[in-house]
């Protein structure tokens, strides 16, 4: 058969395919909307209840719920692949493009860029809302730039972490539980480790986010003294390792 367009199933095609799949299923679209909404709702809530501590910053207070949004970002990342395992469409996907690392790469680009954009937009809006609603002069402002770009980066990295865990675990429920556990448990169980707490809690993706939002919760005692940006690079680093592991497993695994 002669075809006018060149026959090709490469990376750009895989990305377009992933984008069509992403926006044509309710679970991913709604969870992404929830991710975008959470920080904004949090900013309004904090301003309305006046529940900000005296030593907190406007930026940190406004982004109180950004940690929840970060977890939702990770859930979307997991759903991107576990949804395909659950519905059996991963076989369809791999018959359309048998180069599995390319498929995972396309999914990774998609989740990282969507979550970066969602994080940046929603957290900026949350900060502006908080700034407008909170009484001026009462709290330190905090440094929104370039911190907000880092916050967005935290969202992107959480999405990638979810994608890696989803690829390894395959089942939606298991993957969502695992990835939320990864994000939540270090800060939950950190105190049990005594002096080692700052290391246990400090390496988690939520710690990097808290440091970047300059919340008063992010004390050196609780999450270590590693700076906000190095924390983000650390999280990005182990997420990359996990994602490469997932790619290796995916390439060898029978589907």
């Amino acid at each position: 058969m002669t075809t006018p367009t060149p026959a090709r199933a490469g990376y750009p095609q895989a990305f377009t395919y992933e984008w069509i799949k992403f926006r044509s299923v309710r679970s991913t679209v709604w969870t992404t909307l929830a991710t975008a909404l959470a920080p904004v709702v949090g900013a309004v809530f904090v301003a309305a209840t006046g529940s900000l501590r005296a030593d907190d910053t406007v930026l940190g207070g406004s982004l109180t719920l950004s940690v929840v949004a970060q977890m939702l970002a990770a859930v979307v990342g997991a759903l991107l692949v576990t949804g395909e395992y659950g519905s059996g469409t991963l076989r369809t996907t791999f018959t359309a493009n048998p180069r599995r690392a390319t498929v995972l790469g396309a999914k990774a680009t998609l989740i990282a860029s969507v979550m970066y954009a969602v994080g940046l937009l929603s957290c900026t809006v949350a900060f502006l809302l908080g700034d407008a609603l909170l009484p001026s002069g009462k709290y330190a402002q905090g440094e929104p730039f370039p911190a907000l770009f880092g916050v967005a980066g935290c969202f992107a990295v959480a999405g990638l972490l979810g994608l890696a865990v989803g690829t390894l675990v395959r089942h939606s429920a298991g993957a969502v539980t695992t990835v939320i556990g990864l994000l939540l448990l270090p800060s939950l169980f950190g105190p049990l480790f005594g002096d080692a707490r700052r290391w246990v809690a400090g390496v988690s993706p939520t710690a990097a986010l808290e440091k970047l939002t300059q919340t008063s919760d992010a004390t050196a005692d609780a999450v270590g003294s590693l700076g906000p940006w190095p924390s983000l690079w650390l999280v990005a680093g182990y997420t990359a390792v996990l994602l490469l592991t997932a790619a290796g497993v995916l390439r060898r695994r029978d589907t």
């Binding site: 367009t5 199933a9 395919y17 069509i20 369809t92």
Partner: peptide
């Protein structure tokens, strides 16, 4: 959860069809 049209549109996109 996906429409038949979107399913086919995705497949078409994946192979430059």
């Amino acid at each position: 959860g996906r429409s038949a049209y979107q399913h086919l549109a995705g497949l078409a996109a994946s192979n430059n069809i």
